[in-house]
Design a protein around this nucleic acid. Sequence first.
RNA 1: GCGCUCAUAGCUCAACGGAUAGAGCACUUGACUACGGAUCAAGAGGUUGCAGGUUCGAAUCCUGCUGAGCGCACCA
Length: 553
Amino acid sequence: MTPAELSQAVQAAVSAAVEAGELTVAVPEHVTVERPKNRDHGDYATNVALQLAKAAGRPPRAVAELLADRLRGITGVAKVDIAGPGFLNITLDTATAGALARTIVEAGEAYGRNRDLAGLKINLEFVSANPTGPIHIGGVRWAAVGDSLARVLRACGADVTTEYYLNDAGVQITKFAASLQAVANGHEAPEGGYVGEYIADIAKAITDAVPGVLDLPEAEQLQVFRTEGLKLMVGEIKRSMDEFGTHFDVWFSEKSLHDSGAVEQATSRLREQGHVFEQDGAVFLRTTDFGDDKDRVLIKADGDTTYFAADAAYYLSKRDRGTEVALYMLGADHHGYVNRLKAIAACAGDDMNHNIEVKIGQFVKMLRDGEEVRMSKRAGNIITIDDVVEWIGVDAARYTLARSSTDSTITLDINVLTSQTNENRVYYVQYAHSRMCAVQRNADEHGISRGAAEDFKPELLITEWESDLLGHLGEFPRVLASAGELREPHRVATYLEDLAAKYHRFYDNCRILPRGDEEVTDLTRARLWLADATRTVVANGLTLLGVTAPERM
RNA sequence: GCGCUCAUAGCUCAACGGAUAGAGCACUUGACUACGGAUCAAGAGGUUGCAGGUUCGAAUCCUGCUGAGCGCACCA
């Protein structure tokens, strides 16, 4: 029996009590059934009686009593206790609990998925770093988290488009081109320009590819460095993302918004909605109507459109392309944009609490030899995505960056991640997977198989380690669902670490395969079912994080 | 000055408003005639920054304070 099935059973018990006139409450849509931390509290616990008590006008324990009697009648439920203020602690009989292993093995890759977000079209934009330099460590965090989130959302049934917004218009690109030009001509970098080896590399690539470029007039030369430099830099970013296993369905050009007239159209569309006004010769969007600190300029007094105007056009483009929820993942230095972005949606007549979501992520701090390594795209001594991959590998990088909540800053110690890789939790999880594969290989070599489903005897999985493992396996669907609902893929990583720990304990305490000339028993086969179920869930979880599940390490 | 976010073990991080706040690292002590020891067992380590409030119940929600990061352009 899965926790979801048990939850429905508890809900049915509430309905039955209401119908029998024993309770007068609205039957809750969702009944929380969870694995208690303390095993003395049974296999599963629900706080439903505590939550219904007030509405029912009865003491929690009295409500619990009513429900307990009904729950005891359910097939597979061995024991129901009332504890503390009114918790219902439910113990399943071992066969019912163990049968979950078969359910998981048979579901395979599909185990854990749900349809909670079915039919929801989500546009997930992340990274979107300026194409004026390599992706730095902050961008790497979004690459890991964003890509995992896309996978999680899809596993919850959502229709997700991942997108990278290329800021290929504007003064920073001109500055980038000027920096390339300066280096190519052996000049000092311009004021506020970009420096670093990559500038020299790209400049050289351009002079190699366009032989006569340095003989062109100044303005034409700059144009060549602009278009060619942008092309090369974007190519580099795409390559890095590809090597990092992060896929974007759409690479969206800001310049295309300007070239197509979409920016002007956006302004007139917002004007029709009645939130545009003019003042001091400029055109404003009245974002203060929807919680912004100040109104934002769309068209400057000199007639140029602002970056904000392009943002508005971009949002509208997402919506025009069928997006129901535009999900933005921004760095902490962009938190000031949240209100104005949401105001764009509201000004466009959308629901700012549904059609747009903005997730802010905190910075990544890196330490080397106990000193903080400062990241600065302009300084040249930056930590790039390629550096991170070279030092610790894609799996460790993705896992380390995705395993923590984006709400908190994280500190990566380069010395630890480079010299003592076994401290990284990803190895712990991957090792559990490898171990299970090794058991499978050994079983295969000896001609041992878990056997047919109808011969599986789940009631033999009675030890505390087997029970613990089974219970945790049952939690996976709930964890995945909440990771999707809360947009927090790190929950999957936390879950996997717990699952790996429970597997390792099971492995150490419960011999799976027979030793020497011992017989193959029903218990052998039952444990193979359990190990296979665990391997399935670990693999499913790692896939959600974009991390490989190795058969050997 | 205004605003956003954060503050949990020595360190790095967890914890749908639930029961005794959990892991890893580091530290102490054990388990290798090994289904792969990249493992396991045990120990020690906490007034969840401070003070109030809401609740049957608060690390979690609300208010104030302290500290840290970041943001406050007719820049992009």
